[in-house]
C-alpha cells in the first residue's frame, strides 16, 4: 500500500443518524398487569374476607375518591383518597427537592475535596443507616407532629442516596473533559455548568430515581408515625377499623401514582440524557 500523506479530504463511509425517541406500548408490562389482576381476582375468590376483588376496590375508589364521609367515623378528615394521595405526593416532592438539593450539593462538593469528603462521608453514612423508626421519634420530639417532621425523615433518606450518587458521578468523571475544556478557554463557571453538570447528570438522575422509589414508602410510614393527613395516616386509621377494601384502595392508589411518576421521571431522564442512551459507542 502506498498511502499518500497530503491535503486530501476523506469522507466517512457511513452516516449514523441521531437516535430519536418514539412513544411505544410496553406489551410485556401490560401482560404483567393483566396477570397480576388475574391472580388478585383468584385470591379474592378464595380469601374474600381479607382480599377484596378488584371490582370491589374499584367501586370503593369511585365512591370515596373526592370525598369520603365515612372517614369521619375513623377520626380523620373526610376529604377522600385523592386528598390523601396528594398530601403524600406533596411530602414526597418536598423531600425530593430538599434532600435532592442537599445530596447533590454536598456530593459534588466532596467529590473533589478529600478533607471535606473525609469529614462528611461518616455523617451521611450514619444518617443513611438509621432506621426510620429510630429517627422518627427524635424528629417528632424536636419538631412536633407536623408536616415538617414527616418531610424531614424522607428528605434525610433522599439526601444520603443522592449524596453517594452525586459524589461518585463527579469522582468518576474523566478529568480529560475538564482539561480539554480548559484548553478551549472554559473558565470555572463554564467548567461547572458545561462539563461537570452534564457529565454527572445521568448518574445523579439515576440516584434521584432510586431515592424516589423508596421515598413513597417512607413518606407513608412517616405519616403513619406522626401526621394527621396523607396516605399513611389513612392506612393507619383504616387498619384500626379493619376496613380491608379501603386499605387496598390507598395501597393501589399509592402504587399507581408512584409507578406513574417513576415512568414520567424515566422519560425525563431519557430525554435529558439522550446523548447517553445507548451507554456506549453505537458505531461499529
Amino acid at each position: 500500500m502506498n498511502a499518500t500523506v497530503t491535503a486530501r479530504r476523506t469522507t466517512p463511509s457511513s452516516s449514523p443518524r441521531p437516535v430519536r425517541w418514539r412513544p411505544r406500548v410496553d406489551v410485556v408490562g401490560l401482560c404483567g398487569v393483566v396477570a397480576m389482576l388475574g391472580v388478585w381476582q383468584a385470591m379474592s375468590v378464595h380469601f374474600g374476607r381479607v382480599v377484596p376483588s378488584p371490582l370491589t376496590v374499584a367501586n370503593e375508589m369511585a365512591k370515596n375518591f373526592i370525598s369520603a364521609p365515612t372517614f369521619r367515623h375513623y377520626g380523620i378528615a373526610d376529604a377522600g383518597y385523592l386528598d390523601a394521595i396528594l398530601y403524600t405526593a406533596g411530602n414526597v416532592s418536598m423531600s425530593m427537592i430538599a434532600g435532592g438539593a442537599a445530596g447533590i450539593a454536598f456530593g459534588l462538593l466532596t467529590a473533589r475535596r478529600r478533607l471535606l469528603r473525609s469529614a462528611l462521608d461518616p455523617i451521611f453514612l450514619t444518617l443513611g443507616t438509621i432506621p426510620i423508626f429510630i429517627a422518627a421519634p427524635f424528629l417528632l420530639l424536636w419538631f412536633g407532629i407536623s408536616r415538617f417532621s414527616a418531610v424531614a425523615i424522607v428528605a434525610i433518606y433522599v439526601a444520603t442516596i443522592v449524596y453517594a450518587y452525586s459524589q461518585r458521578a463527579l469522582y468518576n468523571l474523566s478529568p480529560v473533559y475538564e482539561q480539554y475544556a480548559q484548553t478551549l478557554g472554559a473558565d470555572d463557571r463554564r467548567l461547572f455548568w458545561d462539563i461537570m453538570v452534564p457529565g454527572t447528570l445521568p448518574e445523579i438522575l439515576g440516584g434521584l430515581r432510586i431515592a424516589l422509589a423508596g421515598a413513597w414508602g417512607l413518606a407513608a410510614i412517616s405519616e403513619l408515625i406522626g401526621s394527621q393527613r396523607g396516605a399513611g395516616k389513612v392506612i393507619q386509621s383504616l387498619a384500626n377499623s379493619v376496613d380491608v377494601k379501603a386499605i387496598f384502595c390507598v395501597l393501589l392508589l399509592l402504587g399507581v401514582v408512584a409507578a406513574a411518576i417513576d415512568a414520567l421521571m424515566a422519560l425525563v431522564i431519557s430525554r435529558v440524557t439522550a446523548w447517553n442512551r445507548a451507554g456506549g459507542n453505537d458505531h461499529e
Binding site: T11, P12, R17, P18, V19, A278, H283
Partner: peptide
C-alpha cells in the same frame, strides 16, 4: 474540512 458534513447533529457515541 475534516469530512464530517451531515453529522452536525449526531452524538459522539454515534461516531467511530
Amino acid at each position: 474540512h475534516v469530512g464530517l458534513e451531515g453529522l452536525e447533529e449526531s452524538w459522539p457515541r454515534e461516531l467511530s
